[in-house]
Design a protein around this nucleic acid. Structure first.
Length: 423
RNA sequence: GGAGAGAUGGCCGAGUGGACGAAGGCGCUCCCCUGCUAAGGGAGUAUACGGCUUAUACCCGUAUCGAGGGUUCGAAUCCCUCUCUCUCCGCCA
């Protein structure tokens, strides 16, 4: 959510900044709603104040044994007026909330202009991409080894799921373990284990709701429960309704969880292989930061994700997303894209964002300012460190031998019982 | 799943219809006193929002005693629904 005060003070400036994302903000509509809200709220609160003071008088009169009948008659009309005013205020406020909760974050000044992924800006590259010639894709490699089974997954569930067996199942686990170990022992993260099911309030806090509910799997039953689309949701919501001491910042958490996405609207995209699944594992990094440090924290976060790819010796590039390609909660996002020889291109394997106070404002995540002693919104950041499924895809494709067997990256061998080659 | 008890401010804890945003204690902040490794005295100490405002400073107002709804002129207090916690039983990893 954006700062309402700023929205009111300078809606045109907000509209200009949101236009960079291709988002059209209806300034006139907002302002007319605001005017009505202001008038109604003032009136409602006045009526409430009046009712409160009269009710107190009734109490006093009663205590003194006076006749309260005339006072009751006097206050009678207030009830109806108050109810009407309140109802009208509620409806205006609901419209306003719907409008403001639907607004995406303002892009940071350093975010490049552009409307989609084609306008993203490459920041740097690492490693030497192996040529595409003769490279098989991960699905062919895995199926040929007999260790990756899409047909079985389709039988069990449906499209966009995978069954892994044997050394590939272990490779998948090894990757997750390796990433967790690097982040906890070298980068100072606290490992956390969290629910894979969250309530609607949590999803509202991180911004998946109210606008992006169709991307989520909803559970049946009495609870307002959904499967997490990313560990960002449960972990960031640690901070909801909390006021941290300034000394408690920064906080760094890492969680390995499955992620569930309905992939609504992705029909036909990446239907082959493990690139785009309804269920995938991810190691997620979440930071809570002082506002003044959040941009250096973002660079740090990216470097932590990069460290994983470097240790795995997977070629990648870092891309700054343009304003039009960023997620709604982000003020600035870097993607890490790993080299996939079968596609002769780089594909997203991590996305690292500074949400500034956008999520913090929704979830009232604050810290106590050491000088003013007042609660202030903190900044939240999150990034994949990295997607486990896609990391496995990248390992298969980049470490494939001409005979279809797979070299095990050196750093993973301790996690694979010393195994050097799969197949 | 069954039975019972509970949810109040940073913490503990009082409060069963009226001057209660909430006694008291602890903690914390500031001041005073005290020359000693102690103690005492005083003041202050929730959050969100609205109005006013150059102001996130005052001031005024509204809301919040787990959440939502209801009764009432008036609800922390009464009623309903839900959530969570604890105890016992059952079941289970």
């Amino acid at each position: 959510m954006l700062d309402v005060k700023y929205l009111r003070a300078d809606p045109e400036a907000v509209a200009v900044q949101l236009a960079r994302r291709g988002f059209e903000f209806d300034v006139a509509g907002f302002q007319s709603l605001e005017e009505r809200r202001k008038a109604l709220q003032t009136r409602t609160e006045q009526l409430q104040a009046e009712r409160n003071s009269r009710s107190k008088n009734i109490g006093k009169a009663k205590a003194q044994g006076q006749d309260i009948a005339p006072l009751l008659a006097d206050v009678e009309r207030l009830g109806g007026e108050l109810d009407a005013a309140r109802a009208e205020l509620d409806s205006v406020q609901n419209s306003l909330t719907a409008l403001t909760q639907g607004l995406p974050n303002l892009p940071h000044a350093s975010v490049p202009d552009g409307k989609d992924e084609n306008d993203n800006v490459e920041v740097r590259r690492w490693g030497d991409p192996r040529p595409a010639e003769g490279a098989k894709d991960h699905a062919d490699l895995g199926e040929a080894l007999g260790l990756m089974d899409f047909a079985m997954a389709a039988k069990l569930t449906g499209a966009r799921f995978t069954v892994l067996r044997g050394q590939l199942a272990r490779l998948h686990r090894a990757l997750a373990q390796f990433m967790l170990d690097v982040h906890t022992t070298e980068h100072g993260y606290q490992e956390v284990y969290v629910p894979y099911i969250v309530n609607g309030t949590s999803l509202l806090g991180t911004g998946q709701l109210p606008k992006f509910g169709e991307d989520l799997f909803t559970l049946q039953g009495d609870h307002d429960w959904r499967l997490i689309p990313t560990a960002e949701v449960p972990v960031t919501n640690f901070l909801r309704d909390e006021i941290l001491a300034a000394e408690e910042l920064p906080q760094r958490w890492v969680a390995h969880t499955p992620c569930f996405r309905s992939e609504a609207g992705s029909a036909g995209r990446d239907t082959r292989g493990m690139i785009r699944q309804h269920q995938f594992d991810k190691v997620e990094l979440v930071h809570a930061s002082l506002p003044e440090h959040s941009y250096e924290t973002l660079e740090l976060l990216v470097s932590h994700a990069e460290a994983i790819l470097q240790k795995l010796e997977l070629p990648y590039r870092v891309v700054a997303l343009c304003a039009g390609d960023m997620g709604a909660s982000a003020a600035k996002t870097y993607d890490l894209e790993v080299w996939l020889p079968s596609q002769n291109t780089y594909r997203e394997i991590s996305s690292c964002s500074n949400c500034e106070a956008f999520q913090a404002r929704r979830m009232l995540a604050r810290y106590r300012h050491p000088e003013t002693k007042k609660p202030e919104l903190l900044h939240t950041l999150n990034g994949s460190g990295v997607a486990v499924g896609r990391a496995m895809v990248a390992v298969l494709e980049n470490y494939q031998r001409p005979d279809g067997r797979i070299d095990v990256p050196t750093v993973l061998r301790p996690y694979m019982g010393g195994l050097e080659v799969i197949g």
